[in-house]
């Protein structure tokens, strides 16, 4: 195992509103994700899974606790620094509508790199490589409304992992897909994690969670007893 976890939650809590009307959406929750780990997060609706993911991706701020992303404490980061983290370290995949409709698949994948200041040529090159990893180079010049749901999600995954990004956060990415396409997406994720990247995946489908190294169970915003299940097994990973 590598030394430092790529993502660490330390007693993180998220509360909406204040006073008597306050709603605790999450926490306190503590866990860590190492390099090369694929972690699945399951639980009933409203358990706080999406909130957990949003906080992990610096899309939302915790009310209490610390979040460490690639060793950096997110609370101390300015908006600009958080944006940089989103360009270089962590990628996000939503359940649907991940892609900007006006850009081609290739341009969508290249977006974080261009936002980071890379030249169009270099960004396109890396985007091509990312599309290759999800085996979609043939569709690079298509627009999102010309792609099927499964293809769109694979493009979204390519974008989430483009360049040197090492952590992917996915919120039910296979929710709108049929079983075969869903399995394809999970295979892609698994291959990426076998290659050293990490991913945290919110899902309500156990057959997809089964691809993970660990499964976290959230109920009422917490990991109760038995909240973490390790799937690695003694045989280890890979071939």
């Amino acid at each position: 195992m590598s030394a430092q976890p790529i993502l660490a939650f330390d007693a993180v809590t998220r509360v909406h509103g204040a006073g008597p009307n306050a709603v605790r959406a999450l926490g306190p929750v503590s866990f860590a994700v190492s390099a090369g780990e694929l972690v699945a997060v399951m639980g009933p609706s409203g358990a706080g899974k999406s909130t957990l993911l949003a906080i992990a991706g610096a899309l939302d701020r915790p009310s209490e606790g610390r979040v460490l992303l690639a060793g950096e404490d997110l609370a101390t980061r300015t908006h600009a620094q958080l944006a940089r983290l989103r360009r270089r370290v962590v990628g996000y995949v939503f359940q649907e509508l991940n892609l900007l409709p006006g850009l081609t698949a290739l341009e969508n994948v290249a977006l974080p790199l261009e936002l980071d200041g890379l030249s169009i040529a270099r960004a396109r090159d890396q985007a091509q490589a990312a599309l290759q990893r999800v085996r979609l180079t043939a569709l690079a010049e298509r627009f999102p409304d010309e792609l099927s749901g499964g293809e769109q999600q694979r493009v979204a995954i390519a974008r989430a992992f483009v360049g040197e990004r090492s952590l992917l956060l996915a919120d039910e990415p296979t929710g709108a897909l049929d079983s075969l396409n869903g399995e394809l997406v999970m295979r892609m994720l698994r291959e990426q994690c076998d290659g050293g990247r990490s991913a945290v995946l919110v899902t309500h489908d156990a057959t997809h969670a089964a691809w993970a190294d660990r499964v976290l169970y959230l109920r009422d915003g917490r990991l109760g007893a038995g909240g973490e299940v390790s799937l690695s097994g003694a045989a280890g990973r890979g071939a």
């Binding site: 944006a83 270089r88 974080p112 980071d116």
Partner: peptide, 12 residues
């Protein structure tokens, strides 16, 4: 929201 999630800053 989408471009922010991909790392665009508010100023961008």
């Amino acid at each position: 929201g989408l471009v922010s999630a991909n790392g665009a800053t508010v100023l961008d």
